[in-house]
Design a protein around this nucleic acid. Structure first.
Ligand SMILES: Nc1nc2c(ncn2[C@H]2C[C@H](O)[C@@H](COP(=O)(O)OP(=O)(O)OP(=O)(O)O)O2)c(=O)[nH]1
Ligand SMILES: [Mg+2]
Ligand SMILES: [Mg+2]
Ligand SMILES: [Zn+2]
Length: 580
DNA sequence: GCCGTTTTCGGCCCGACTGTTTTCAGTCG
């Protein structure tokens, strides 16, 4: 049992309760608890014997704490089991169809004994839906298309992929006279590692009420469109050929701040912010913040004005996940989170000596162009499955080469020696200790045997960081976004020990990794671990591309002090694990 | 079911779009 599974059980229970006709606020509290289980840094299994500790988590009360304890003890939740026995598992998938909500699921179940997607598809083909309440021809066609879209849907997208798509669409939209500004919002603006859809805010005179007709037609004529989902006066939603959904929202320039605030979200942040507005005698929507009594507008043009009228500091979009930022902003206690521009060096990169493309000198020149003060050359160690990994002899040669280039470059940048040494299946390292001891930056990483059990993997990493030469744990979970799951690991135990030893955790900023993720970065900070953000470049052109990584650090509320490579070269080395 | 700068009871965000609704329900952002 783990937090993620517990979150899924609670979310499924919420879905089932809603289909079963439960009170909607009660359903909402289950959804809230599911989100809390997923986002909390408390290990729910560890905390299960302490109800008071569970109840400290926002959204977990007395009753939810007891349910969490039951899940840990038995592996299931009786409520969920009973409802599943009544409706069958297929009902959960049915609810996932676009356009399908709890009311329609209940109708189909009561009136036509439909409880799975396949049964629905069969009923549509057989014409069995005709005559059901609220089931006209258009509604039935909508459901048929819903099944088609669901079966074709590809899920979420990596943020770099989403951003590229967004840039194409933004460029098209901006060409329309009267659309002044197109601002990406939603999870893309918040910097989430994956993006469910693109949310684009269009503002300008052509987006003002009663005047949107031409702009809407122009948007709907975007050449990349596969199909249009909805098209109204104030918004257009469509799929592009690659399957990504795009929501374009049109609002007048005077509402820009309220609109951007709304469309940036997150949903949970919006709901709490709107509740705060109500308590203060205001109402907040995407058009404006207005007084409840005479409906006069208090703020609308900028986000700063909205937050300020709510007696809060403005905060970066990355922090808007309802994880304490509303209270912090109201108390004027928001931390100054780290920015990409704070980064002064990059200490994980490969050269042509192993599987990179460039020489040491080329990497150094590229780093100078990025404005960095130092880099470390960290090629792979010799290991099965690694192209061209360095053995002890080649490592020693490379140390010499690095020192030569470093002195030839005459202080324009500092080049540290280093290695990305493999952690073998038993936790030993792939290079001899005497050699590792001669290098500045020793990153230990796992590139093999991802299938080990949680206990084996935890022991393996523990043994590796106990080696006094290891100064950074590289891409600690090994995940590849949307391709390979993180390996099973007791992250809390690793981070606690790493903090004691002074081993820094890497945030690998390659967009397919972003490892550690935002959640584990928050946990690392809580447990006192230092972080190093690195590009893991295999090509000099990728140096400096750590923007998505910086967004993850900000999502974890990390400040420059938490990130070692915001320091100068001397400070960076001093922040690493002390050498014996 | 959760929660408290009026509350331990009585609230719980707010608007756009679609369909068959003759006055609004359902779904989604
Ligand atoms: N007030 C309010 N705003 C919402 C609600 N649902 C969505 N929003 C706002 C905040 C969201 O960030 C924004 C875009 O909605 P999306 O469904 O696209 O969510 P988001 O982009 O955050 O995540 P995603 O990666 O697309 O799954 O719209 C809601 O129920 N109430
Ligand atoms: Mg979105
Ligand atoms: Mg959206
Ligand atoms: Zn690696």
């Amino acid at each position: 049992m783990d937090n993620k599974t517990m979150a899924r059980l609670l979310a499924e229970t919420a879905d089932l309760m809603e289909i079963d006709g439960a009170d909607s606020f009660r359903v909402r509290s289950y959804r809230r608890a599911a989100d809390a289980a997923e986002q909390t840094t408390v290990d729910l299994v560890e905390a299960a014997n302490d109800a008071a500790r569970l109840m400290e988590i926002d959204g977990i009360g007395k009753s939810m704490a007891a349910k969490l304890q039951a899940i840990v003890a038995t592996g299931t939740l009786p409520q969920r089991d009973e409802l599943l026995a009544k409706y069958g598992v297929g009902i959960l998938e049915l609810l996932k169809l676009p356009g399908m909500g709890p009311k329609t699921v209940t109708l189909l179940w009561d009136a036509a004994q439909i409880g799975t997607v396949d049964q629905l598809a069969g009923a549509i083909d057989a014409g069995r839906l005709k005559g059901l309440p609220r089931m006209g021809d258009k509604q039935i066609e909508k459901l048929r298309k819903g099944i088609e879209d669901y079966r074709r849907s590809v899920g979420r997208f990596r943020i770099d992929v989403a951003e590229e798509e967004a840039e194409r669409i933004v460029a098209y939209l901006k060409k329309f006279k009267g659309i002044d500004k197109v601002t990406p919002a939603g999870s893309l603006r918040r910097g989430r590692e994956t993006i469910g859809d693109l949310d684009l805010l269009a503002t300008g005179p052509a987006c003002a009420p009663e005047k949107t007709g031409a702009a809407v037609e122009y948007i709907a004529a975007y050449p990349g469109i596969h199909d249009i989902i909805v098209k109204g006066e104030n918004k257009v939603s469509f799929h592009v050929a690659q399957g990504m959904q795009v929501d374009v929202r049109l609002l007048p320039s005077a509402s820009y701040g309220a609109a951007l605030q709304y469309f940036t979200g997150s949903k949970a942040h919006n709901v709490v912010l709107r509740q705060r507005a109500l308590k203060m005698g205001y109402t907040l929507n995407e058009w404006a913040l207005a007084r409840l009594d005479d409906e006069s507008i208090v703020a609308a043009a900028t986000e700063e004005e909205i937050y300020s009228a709510l007696k809060m500091d403005w905060m970066p979009p990355e922090m808007r996940e309802n994880l304490g930022e509303i209270d912090a902003a109201a108390d004027h206690k928001l931390p100054r989170v780290v920015a990409l521009s704070d980064i002064r060096g990059d200490v994980h990169m490969h050269t042509a000596a192993s599987d990179g493309r460039n020489s040491i000198g080329e990497m150094a020149e590229a780093a100078i162009a990025c404005g960095y003060q130092y880099i470390a050359i960290t090629d792979h160690s010799k290991f099965i499955g690694i192209t061209n990994g360095l053995d002890e002899k080649r490592v020693l040669e490379q140390i010499k080469q690095v020192r030569e280039v470093d002195s030839a470059i005459k202080g324009r940048i500092r080049i540290f020696t280093g290695i990305e040494v493999d952690i073998l299946a038993d936790g030993a390292l792939a290079l001899a200790d005497e050699v590792l001891a001669q290098m500045d930056v020793v990153i230990a990483s796992i590139h093999s045997r991802f299938d080990q059990s949680r206990e084996e993997m935890t022991q393996r990493v523990m043994r590796a960081i106990e080696n006094p030469n290891v100064r950074i744990l590289g891409h600690p979970t090994g995940r590849l976004l949307l391709r390979r799951e993180p390996f099973a690991l007791d992250m809390g135990a690793i981070l606690r020990r790493a903090a004691e030893l002074g081993v820094a955790m890497e945030h690998n900023a390659a967009p397919e990794r972003l490892d550690l993720n935002d959640h584990d970065l928050r946990l690392a900070k809580e447990l006192g671990c230092k972080i190093v953000m690195s590009s893991d470049s295999h090509d000099s052109r990728n140096l400096g591309k750590m923007g998505y990584g910086a967004r993850q650090l900000r999502r974890a509320w990390l400040t420059p002090e938490d990130v070692l490579n915001t320091r100068d070269a001397k400070g960076f080395l001093a922040g690493l694990r002390p050498r014996a």
